[in-house]
């Protein structure tokens, strides 16, 4: 299994990369860490005419906080995000989700932005960023624009990114860091694509009533899903066992997964409900425990 032949371009700036994309159009494909793309090339599921290698663009490798946002450059290695103290402090949900991605050996190479633009519906980074209400910054030869992650995913492996555009960075709001968070997923063995994954961020008030919540589910549709019903159901309430059951049922009622070789539709629905309950419960307990500490 070897890739088909392609022309190779290595730009030294983002602007140069954008020019190449403009020039080659659909024929040009960006490669960064290559942990999703190279298997596809090796199996010849895709045979692009030209690869534009942006993996060396240092200007897109950073994790920094500016104002009320945490900025993560698209080419930052997943492993660097995983080990970042700033990420752990500002977005503990992301820090919890990252070790589920592939293996240490692929996270060493795979980029944060690469996982996002690949847009696998079971991927951990898209699911977490949807829960965290993040935004992405996109650049082309003509403009730089920002899109909410909520509007970024279109369908399987398809995003709002145009063929002439590059993902520059991800912005995660940090004005208010939820005390409650949880990321959990089920896969047949560690490192496999998840059958179902779930992420939750949640806060409680002084009386331990839920003040805010976002619950997202992966592997249950063509894109990561925000379980909106849950919010209306549990806001202002304490999370009792009966409410937890009702909320997880509501989360699973929202979705319409497809069955495939790996799991039937019924099994995915079952897992979605189980994992919705698990992340809600964990996030709630963490929020209750954390409400006394700091602000």
């Amino acid at each position: 299994m070897k890739p088909a032949a392609f022309d190779y371009l290595r730009p030294s700036t983002v602007e140069e990369a954008c020019q190449y994309l403009q020039e080659y159009g659909e024929e040009g494909k960006l490669i960064a860490g290559g942990q999703s793309l190279v298997p596809i090339l090796n199996m010849r599921l895709s045979t692009p005419e030209c690869l534009i290698d942006i993996s060396g663009l240092e200007e897109l490798k950073y994790i920094r906080e500016e104002g009320d946002w945490l900025h993560i450059g698209a080419l930052t290695r997943q492993r660097d995000v995983e080990r970042s103290a700033l990420v752990r402090e500002k977005t503990p949900l992301l820090a919890e989700a990252l070790p589920y991605i592939g293996h240490m050996q692929t996270r060493n190479r795979g980029t944060f932005g690469g996982s996002l633009v690949h847009a696998d519906p079971t991927a951990e980074i898209p699911l977490s960023l949807l829960a965290l209400q993040a935004a992405v910054v996109i650049q082309s030869a003509e403009e730089i624009r920002a899109v909410d992650v909520e509007d970024f995913f279109i369908t399987y492996l398809t995003t709002d990114l145009m063929p002439n555009e590059i993902l520059r960075e991800v912005k995660i709001p940090t004005r208010h860091i939820p005390k409650g968070y949880s990321f959990q997923e089920y896969s047949r063995k560690h490192g496999d694509f998840a059958l179902v994954s779930a992420a939750c961020v949640l806060d409680v008030d002084e009386q331990e009533r839920i003040a805010s919540v976002r619950l997202t589910l992966g592997g249950v549709d063509a894109v990561p899903v925000l379980a909106r019903e849950v919010e209306g159901l549990i806001l202002g309430e304490k999370l009792t066992d009966s409410l937890l059951l009702e909320a997880s049922r509501a989360a699973a009622a929202d979705i319409d997964p497809e069955g495939d070789l790996h799991a039937s539709r019924e099994y995915r629905l079952h897992l979605a409900q189980v994992f919705a309950a698990r992340v809600l419960e964990t996030a709630y307990h963490r929020a209750v425990l954390g409400k006394g500490s700091a602000t």
């Binding site: 490669i31 290559g34 942990q35 298997p39 690869l51 993996s55 050996q105 060493n108 190479r109």
Partner: peptide, 19 residues
């Protein structure tokens, strides 16, 4: 095929030599 590239363990079948 795991090797160390600049001290980090990576899959050498998922990297182009030219990279």
């Amino acid at each position: 095929c795991t090797v160390l590239v600049d001290g980090r363990a990576v899959r050498s079948c998922l990297i182009l030599a030219i990279q």
